[in-house]
């Protein structure tokens, strides 16, 4: 069986009158297996959307090759697009139509039934709002409707371009559950995001993208492991003596100030047990390395999403 997506050495340069040449996509290659939840993580302007648009077949690259489910997305073919579900950054809706009319129109384009359309509306929790005009829906509801439209054709491969951007935290969590469900049904999902925690929470593998290049691809856990960064344990100062702090640190770094003591340790279990036995857990905070540290390590730059 072919991979869901194979991308080899994509390049795309924009030539703007004022901006000059911008290498939006600069030699991007990756592969997504069937059933995978694949994330493209990067700050705004990293080239995520352009990459996605080239993969979907909306833009033609200057060079490079794309295979979607074993075939080229260019030129447009109904056989291929029937197997894809797409949610774009802007909520692309027919004007003045209700949520139900919207998704029923998309259902007809994919040759799906009205029942299927109603089912998808229910899946994203919009049945109550079925008769509301699209422009009257909230941002989160529009994104959910957009995802429902992407799913109505029962796609094998789903593209989601920053679906949670500009949503409040609660709406974002709800959407995460929805996206997990989509992937759990066996669909391949490709997600672009500039939220670290989103990529960490959802993706099997993440490609970290910056300045048009993919800097690294790994699972979130694999990234953190390979970083081999110490766990930072913070407690309130004044609970243990300075000598004891040095003993507990066992040769690793200790910093402090601002009423706290921060241990950096490779063995957080032992340290925490020791602190607990001495009743010194006031103001405890444990922070392991996350994708933010990975980004800093991979790109040499602070995260600035």
């Amino acid at each position: 069986m072919d991979a869901a997506i194979e991308v080899a050495d994509l390049r795309k340069t924009y030539r703007g009158r004022r901006t000059g040449e911008v290498r939006a996509v600069d030699g991007v290659s990756f592969r997504v297996e069937r059933g995978e939840f694949f994330g493209i993580l990067g700050p705004n302007g990293a080239g995520k959307t352009t990459t996605l648009e080239i993969v979907e077949g909306l833009r033609r690259p200057d060079s490079g090759e794309v295979r979607l489910l074993g075939r080229s997305p260019w030129p447009h073919s109904p056989e291929l697009t029937r197997r894809l579900g797409v949610q774009l950054q802007a909520s692309a809706f027919f004007e003045f139509l209700s949520a139900r009319e919207q998704i029923e129109t998309f259902a007809e384009l994919y040759g799906a039934s009205k029942a299927r359309a109603a089912e998808m509306l229910d899946l994203v929790g919009l049945t109550e709002h079925a008769n509301v005009r699209c422009e009257k829906l909230s941002g989160g509801q529009q994104q959910r409707l957009s995802i429902a439209c992407a799913l109505v054709g029962d796609p094998e491969l789903v593209f989601l371009d920053e679906p949670t951007a500009a949503l409040d935290p609660q709406a974002r969590r709800n959407l995460w559950d929805l996206m997990r469900g989509i992937n759990a049904e066996g669909r391949t999902v490709v997600l672009t995001t500039h939220y670290m925690e989103e990529a960490e929470a959802l993706c099997d593998r993440v490609a970290i993208m910056d300045a048009g290049k993919i800097k690294a691809v790994d699972s979130p856990a694999g990234f953190v492991r390979s970083l081999d960064a110490p766990t930072r344990v913070t407690v309130a100062a004044g609970q243990v003596s300075d000598e004891r702090i040095k003993e507990l640190a066992a040769g690793e770094a200790v910093t402090g100030g601002d009423g706290t003591v921060v241990f950096e340790t490779r063995d957080p279990r032992e340290l925490l047990t020791a602190l607990a036995s001495e009743g010194a857990l006031d103001g405890l905070a444990v922070r392991t390395a996350n994708l933010e540290d990975v980004f800093l390590h991979v790109t040499g730059r602070e995260w600035r999403a």
């Binding site: 979907e56 797409v86 692309a92 004007e95 054709g153």
Partner: peptide, 19 residues
């Protein structure tokens, strides 16, 4: 101009219907 804003045409290009 609406299509430039709401990307409807772009979305429809990715359905089985042709432009």
């Amino acid at each position: 101009v609406d299509w430039k804003r709401d990307k409807l045409l772009r979305r429809l290009r990715l359905t089985p219907a042709s432009v």
